[in-house]
Amino acid sequence: MSGLSTRQRVLWVAVAVLVLLYALFPVASILATSLKPAGELQSGRFLPQNPTLGAYEQILVGGAQDLFLSALRNSIGISLIATAIAVILATLAAYAIARLDFPGKRVVLTAALGVSIFPVISIVTPLFNLWRNIGLYDTWAGLIIPYLSLTLPISIWTLSAFFRQIPWELEQAAQVDGATTWQAFRRAIVPLAAPGVFTTALIAFFIAWNDFVYGISLTSTEAARPVPAALAFFTGASQFEEPTAFISAAAVVVTIPVVVLVVLFQRQIVAGLTQGAVKG
């Protein structure tokens, strides 16, 4: 931002602050709500008067523990497996799309795009019936497969765009230097593609982690129910009490892995790693 005048800089900071407020206000609101005791939920104030960790206690070690912890386990397991499969398949597919010239290349890309714009809600009912008939209903695999349909297209698209940026000469140079096709891929391309793969993995993980429609429709017990769906099953202490605080607390807890992931992967997502390969 060295080329900016003071006025421009002030403007940029103002815009950034506005965007941050807009994005973070709901999070702050949920955090505040999760700390309120049951009596204060309707108080109309933003900050709790008597902050309490009761809601967290309830979902992590208290009565709602079974519901929440099993859901958390399901969410983590299902999202990780779906992400891993999606990234491995997408890496190979994207590499082929970026590097090789084969008939049907455009069809693959267009089909991937077509799948990703297909509304989830319209296939969930047939899927529900199919899964019940073939025994995938309420299993991890029953969620991983539809999640792949969500994560694969976008992974293939982002990764093939990323692979296209890597100079092809690197691979050719490796081949001339005595590498097999596989060695060239592993030693010259994969290290360069790593940031792109991590970014894609992050996106794929969030898609799986945040899904609600499949999660609530294709599960019925805690055998496979993920967190977003489980939140809908929280109940208050009595039937006249809203479980708002519990839901808020759970929402805060499930945000933590996402933040941790971003912080962890941030170190891997080093922009401009390809700089220096070819003349800048």
Partner: peptide
């Protein structure tokens, strides 16, 4: 190569 094709990593 024309663009050197050095391995940046």
């Amino acid at each position: 190569f024309q663009n050197y094709a050095l391995y940046p990593h």
